[in-house]
Nucleic acid binder design. Structure first.
Lengths: 355, 355
DNA sequence: CTGAAAGCGCTTACAG
DNA sequence: CTGAAAGCGCTTACAG
């Protein structure tokens, strides 16, 4: 009698367990799958369990898959999510949700190429994946590839144009409200500017702009609605030239100040633009938050590195990923859009207006 | 005759292709796998090809796997690599290398838990993966789990204590030399300090320190060797209190300046520490690079955001990942450590010494 | 050159 | 309560 699996040899099969336990293969299968509906004797159960343990039996998932059509794997299909830092915490969230269930994750990035996407999907389907998390780096509207119709799918950080899917997105409108609420609570009234509009007439050009990111319109909508509910409105908007990065944010705020505006607070479309705003304000010798308050969005690492640290409404990437995986594994496929709260990452960049 | 696959029905099988083409299943298999060694007639070849296309035939990879033992999938197994931003570009590199070969990637993070690791490995083996890229967020020495002995494995961003594996790591020693070389070329001689030693006696505590990251000793070795080759040596070392982040870097450099040191250049163990150094220098009214040059390591996004932009020796994460995947798929399993060049990310933080 | 058959390792009606 | 048998969709000796 060997108590450890034979070394340097093939993997143990169910047949071997059956033989050792002195039962049929069916019995072993039932025990391994915990099928108590077969009314196996406690003795058989125990013998099988012990034989499996002694032999170090590990079920061959490939064989199970061929037989049952279920593989215990899902795929996270995205443009850039798993190969790029920005929204990568969604992968963490999904992985954590799956970990408890012995489900493995295929990770594929198409880098935005529809042909690659189609090829990868076929490749995945050929491996009998049980479902797809279809996701995007930036929150946006997508046209899910028709191929996806044949699998259980959850959209993550994106919504289908049609809308009859299960989708999980950050609650950007509420995030906008939150930003406005913080400023109103601090006493700001008529000097609140928004920084980060796209230049009038701008369409396409920026990769992410062609994709129509939802962050801008939804954040703005929340801000305006919340201000309106207090009888307030934005003092104005400043557009960026190109992109939502620090140099563009800096130029935008430089222009604003040169135009003679006296903002009491800047709500920047994201943290990078806010970082640029910091530079422009610093150069013009405006103190944050004494002379002007600043709020960003995204909750990026950058927010904590600025001085003073930036108050930012965070993209809850990990929560989004976890929620999407959980929904995919649930049996509820009712089409809907779930909005996940964007938590405030409190910094030291918001104060009371002094003017 | 239907020219498109029947909709809303089961997937097309090889048998159906055989039937439609009027040949045996063997013949179809041979054609689909491009086995010209069977000397099939050109006519059969063409008939099969057409039948497969008309039916939209996609081979069932699960069935192939069960039969052949090869699944066309590999796994990237790490502590935090795929679920965390830092070294995530390694996933991109690996994915890009695999993309051309129709090999899919399982991505699993153990978050440093050996039990989770073992469970995940069994789960992967049960799916007949063809190989494993075993990787770590920080470059370090690992003890690869014994289970890995049963699969083709490449170590990525880590080396085995034993050493009889294929490993791909960044060339940290050469990176250290490069940093020193830049300063020597700019004319620095006796005022070059290293910032980022661990405090004397420090062992453990920091998660990554328990793991014994190789960046510190190897970068330092390269720096010292390169300086020595020019007859120079470091003016001294400053240790951080805790961690390699900006606050620690700032405190370290504050101490250095308070002690009356007059550095002409600071080589910081990484970019975050360099960012802290910037703050300390700024506060003390030292100008970069006029009064002091600064060099970092990692090539993080941070380097480009500092003012002036930081010259940094970059971790080539994408290259590392690509190389590891390529090695895994090659048939050369000769144990060795491949060192990948760390390119200089040139900023504006290095100048000639003025004192 | 082609086709019938075995078999990869499971699950699951079905007969006893 | 148990066991023999079919079958998931392929690949691959093997006989012709």
């Amino acid at each position: 009698m060997t108590d450890s699996p034979p070394s340097g040899t093939r993997r143990v099969t169910l047949s071997q367990v059956a033989e050792r336990a002195g039962v049929s293969r069916s019995a072993v299968s039932f025990v391994m799958n915990g099928r108590t509906d077969q009314r196996l004797s406690a003795d058989v159960f125990e013998r099988v369990r012990r034989a499996a343990e002694e032999l170090g039996y590990r079920p061959n998932q490939t064989a199970k898959t061929l037989r049952t059509g279920r593989s215990g794997t899902i795929a996270l299909v995205s443009d850039f999510v798993s190969s790029t830092s920005y929204a990568n915490a969604m992968v963490r969230g999904a992985m954590r949700a799956l970990r408890e269930r012995d489900i493995l994750l295929f990770t594929v990035d198409t880098e935005g190429d529809p042909q690659v996407e189609e090829r990868l999907l076929h490749s995945l389907f050929g491996r009998d994946i049980d479902g797809v998390i279809y996701t995007s780096m930036f929150t946006r509207i997508v046209d899910p590839p028709p191929l996806l119709a044949s699998t259980r799918t959850v959209l993550l950080n994106c919504r289908a144009r049609g809308g009859d899917d299960v989708a999980v997105v950050p609650d950007e409108v509420e995030a906008g409200r939150e930003a406005a609420r913080l400023l109103v609570a601090a006493g700001h009234t008529d000097g609140i500017w928004f920084v980060g509009d796209l230049p009038p007439g701008r369409r396409g050009g920026l990769l992410w702009n062609e994709w129509g990111p939802l962050a801008l319109p939804e954040r703005l909508e929340g801000i305006e609605r919340e201000l309106a509910s207090s009888g307030l409105s934005l003092a104005g908007h400043v557009a960026v030239d190109d992109d939502w990065d620090a140099p563009n944010g800096q130029r935008a705020v430089e222009r604003l100040l040169e135009d003679g505006a006296r903002p009491s607070a800047l709500i920047c479309v994201n943290d990078a633009v806010a970082a640029g705003a910091y530079r422009a304000l610093h150069a013009a010798e405006w103190r944050i938050p004494d002379d002007v308050s600043v709020i960003g969005f995204d909750g990026s690492p950058l927010a904590g590195m600025l001085e003073p640290s930036l108050t930012s409404i965070s993209l809850p990437h990990e929560d989004l990923g976890r929620r999407a995986a959980t929904l995919l594994l649930s049996d509820d496929a009712t089409p809907r859009v779930e909005r996940v709260r964007m938590p405030v990452h409190l910094g030291a960049s918001v104060g009371s207006p002094t003017r």
